[in-house]
Amino acid sequence: MPLQSLFIPFSTIVIKEVSRFMRIWVQTIVPPAISMTLYFVIFGSLIGPRIGTMNGFDYIDYIAPGIIMMSIINNAYANVVSSFYGAKFQRHIEEILVAPIPNFIILAGYVTGGVVRGFLVGMVVTIVALFFTDLHLHSFTITIAVVLMTSIVFSLAGMINAIFANKFDDISIIPTFVLTPLIYLGGVFYSIDLLPEFWQKVSAFNPILYMVNAFRYGMLGESDISITHAFIMLIIFTITLLIVSLQLLNRGVGIKS
């Protein structure tokens, strides 16, 4: 298939996705900016000075990368899960299914939409963070690579959730009961060195731990996990979720009868 005939459908899905979340920016861009401002105010400015330092950094500096990463994860996931499930619910997913678009292009289009929203919200929250602290940047390449891979992983996870979802409850259960606990227990607000040895081992099963620490390494040069180990885990998560979501689309699970 000529490259152009793949690029046009891909860019159509991406533009449609970005237009969708920009059209409702009050619901998609503003809330993370407000909630993350509250995190910085409460945990950074009010409680932070009483906590002191964490692994040699002021507490607000230590939690800033985790808070930015938290907003990227939530928004990349939310974008794909709500958009793809919405398309299923309103049945306009059929517009794409009847067209000669390979499934990997459909997946790439939706995931790119999630990545763009993740990046955009991440930038907004970074700007908010600059009002509270001076952010460091240890490695630009690592920082961008981690943001990119994390938003891909959670866009893919959002796609899988949307594929299996049969009602609106199904797209809020995973973020509420799985994603949120994993984020809060993923080292956003503390170093896992503070945990007892048993809970440190349990934390190693939390994928978000690797993402938050790799991002913190990119910004502060400090991580509870070796950066190589974190990247290996990110690559494994990306490939696994990519294969699973592509297989589900190829089999038509949740979208074809």
Partner: peptide, 10 residues
């Protein structure tokens, strides 16, 4: 227009 895009039409 979006439907045209899905079919690869400029």
């Amino acid at each position: 227009l979006n439907q045209g895009g899905y079919y690869g039409i400029k």
